[in-house]
């Protein structure tokens, strides 16, 4: 069997280095297969996330030869066989170990975005009517598998580390899916400007290029949202009217939902971001 040299980042939050491994290549193999083969034979403690191995869960995001990709959908035969394949973790998030990064920030960001709030049902049986044409766009956004490759490649996060101020392409897509949902009544436009700083995005379209679901992030999600921000805050005619009438500002704080369950304070913890403290530490 032919062999290919893999150069894989090994290390943790304290540091690390690339290590070389020879991998036997079979027909149709993807990069994730090579990682699995290494775990089973040469490097049982090589850390990597994966689940479905079919491009549907978005767990195995990494950078292969410098390009953010899903390892399960990256065929080894796409690379020249005489050159090493370099695999390293996503750079925008803190490293945990080897190819695994701490992506918990993304989960915290999502919680800051006001959730879906539907209009009252259209029919007496509690259902709604929507035409397919009106939901095509939203369905495109909802294809997102939350691999966070778009976050990884976004220079506002990757180079300028604006994680505190900027929510990144994934969450503009999420916001767009909510804002363009035919049933939604929430308004997130002010939050996009004030809290999520959509203005930092200068539409270089890197996110669109790396999206494994081929969502046209920039053109279909970010630019329309930017336009809505402009319409609400920078429209000269509107400004004039607002001089006369006090403006109504929307909020990013979750409003009471019309759904049957009451709202309550969110908590979320991951291994690295534990918000619910243990009640009784013990050492027997």
């Amino acid at each position: 069997m032919p062999q290919i040299l893999f150069r894989i980042w090994r290390g943790d939050r304290h540091g690390g280095q690339f290590r070389d491994y020879q991998v036997e290549i079979g027909e149709g193999m993807v990069v994730l297969d090579a990682i699995h083969q290494l775990q089973a034979t040469q490097a049982p403690d090589l850390a990597c996330r994966w689940n479905c191995k079919a491009g549907k869960c978005g767990s195995c995001a990494a950078e292969v030869n410098g390009i953010p990709r899903l390892m399960c959908m990256t065929r080894i035969s796409d690379f020249p066989p005489d050159q090493p394949i370099i695999v390293e973790p996503m750079q925008t998030f803190p490293l945990i170990k080897d190819l695994v990064t701490d992506v918990s920030w993304n989960y915290q960001v999502k919680q800051r975005i006001a959730p879906f709030r539907p209009r009252p049902p259209d029919a007496p049986d509690g259902t709604w009517r929507m035409s397919q044409a009106d939901i095509d766009r939203v369905q495109e956004f909802r294809k997102c598998i939350e691999c966070f490759l778009c976050q990884d490649v976004c220079h506002v996060l990757r180079d300028h580390h604006k994680h505190e101020e900027f929510i990144g392409p994934r969450f503009f897509v999420h916001t767009a899916a909510l804002e363009m949902h035919p049933l939604d009544t929430e308004n997130r436009i002010a939050a996009l400007k004030r809290d999520f700083h959509i203005g930092y995005c200068n539409i270089t379209k890197c996110c669109t290029k790396v999206c494994p679901e081929q969502i046209t992030i920039t053109d279909n999600a970010i630019i329309p949202l930017k336009e809505r921000v402009v319409d609400e805050f920078y429209d000269p005619v509107l400004k004039l009217i607002q001089l006369v009438f006090r403006p109504r500002r929307s909020s990013s704080v979750p409003a009471p939902s019309s759904s049957p369950h009451p709202q309550s304070a969110p908590t979320l913890s991951s291994a690295s971001a534990t918000t619910s403290a243990p009640v009784s530490p013990s050492s027997p």
Binding site: K56, F116, R142, P254, T267, A271
Partner: peptide, 24 residues
């Protein structure tokens, strides 16, 4: 991709319900 729609809907709804999530 019905399963993705189902899990994402429950996830996006669930994270606002005060559930403590322990990932990984």
């Amino acid at each position: 991709r019905t399963g993705l729609e189902l899990i994402r809907t429950l996830q996006d709804y669930g994270i606002h319900r005060g559930i403590s999530v322990y990932m990984e």
